[in-house]
Design a binder for these strands. Structure first.
Lengths: 172, 172
DNA sequence: GGGAAATAGTTCAAGTATGAAATTTCAAGT
DNA sequence: ACTTGAAATTTCATACTTGAACTATTTCCC
């Protein structure tokens, strides 16, 4: 959903006693909020279009795509554990998605010798083939959706986002 | 979820016969994909933190917050219809969220005279009070999460996002 | 006026998502 | 060996989300 709330009235109204308006903390906070709302709206919109494309053209979904993408990168397979860390979603969530991918024949579970708690999850050959097609299409869709963005823009925004607390988290 | 896929190998590999690499279509496409993945990751991360905050501090959720925000802006109330258009979510979705907000006492349904199909949905006094608190906190959280973003940055990214196909859609 | 089309909502099935509890297995320490 | 604790997953309750089917009401048009 959209978080369609707009900045409320400033707590420090008209006359600002701290200095230039544009250097004001209130103003900066409002501007960041506006930015966040716009980022959210754009992201949601793009996600919706990608989801629709995946649904219509591949009878698949974004979560499935995400899981397959992670497994495609680690072609030796991942433990459920690692998968959920990689995708930053809850453990139980991954269980369900993988379950459906197994039903689809795109993914297989492999027992790990020496640890009967864990399971390895891996793309099947069919899964790899399907994902390769999906990924190619996906890149095309994104490219089209970000039509107005030049390479410089992309690079610039990327840099700005990169410094954010939200982007510097525990990845890997 | 995350769409953690990285750009695959370029279809046009090393030697590029079309001109400078940075002006290459392939390269631009990859750069846009990279940008999209980063936007998605940052957005998801911020959303996750906001959701957590709402849960812990207000025992609420983002969808509830979004609905309340929309109703706060239109203090006369909105029809379910308008609400779902405003938030860009499905009709049935809004039904459920409003239902829970009604249970919470934050929202009330009001019959519309002259059209027995539609219902008006409005924040209660309690709902307005609660939302005012939540919105203040929310702005603070966003402000903190976007800590590294200057006012110029915010403005710049905002402008770039603004031109996107995804942002120019049927709003309001 | 009467019926087709449009509009407003709810309901439904399936999938996604979380956080918490429960289960099974492993790893130590005693 | 035994128990305690950690680790890997699944299960569960709840909630969100979509797209489609369904109901009820209104509007339009002949």
């Amino acid at each position: 959903m959209s978080t369609e709330c707009q900045p409320l009235e400033p707590a420090t109204p008209a006359g600002d006693s701290l200095g230039k308006e544009s250097l004001n903390k209130e103003s900066l906070s409002k501007e960041r909020l506006r930015l966040w709302l716009r980022m959210l709206r754009v992201t949601r919109q793009i996600e919706a279009e990608l989801r629709e494309k995946l649904r219509v053209e591949f009878d698949s979904t974004l979560p499935r795509f995400d899981v397959m993408a992670a497994l495609f990168r680690d072609s030796d397979g991942l433990k459920m554990n690692e998968l959920s860390k990689r995708l930053r979603v809850s453990n139980g969530n991954v269980t369900g998605i993988v379950e459906r991918l197994v039903d689809d024949g795109a993914v297989e579970r492999i027992a790990i010798e020496g640890d009967r708690r864990a399971t390895l999850v891996r793309l099947t050959a069919a899964g790899r083939a399907t994902f390769t097609e999906m990924a190619r299409a996906h890149e095309g869709w994104v490219n089209a959706l970000l039509d107005g963005v030049t390479e410089d823009d992309a690079h610039h925004i990327g840099e700005l986002l990169h410094g954010l607390p939200a982007d510097t988290g525990e990845r890997q």
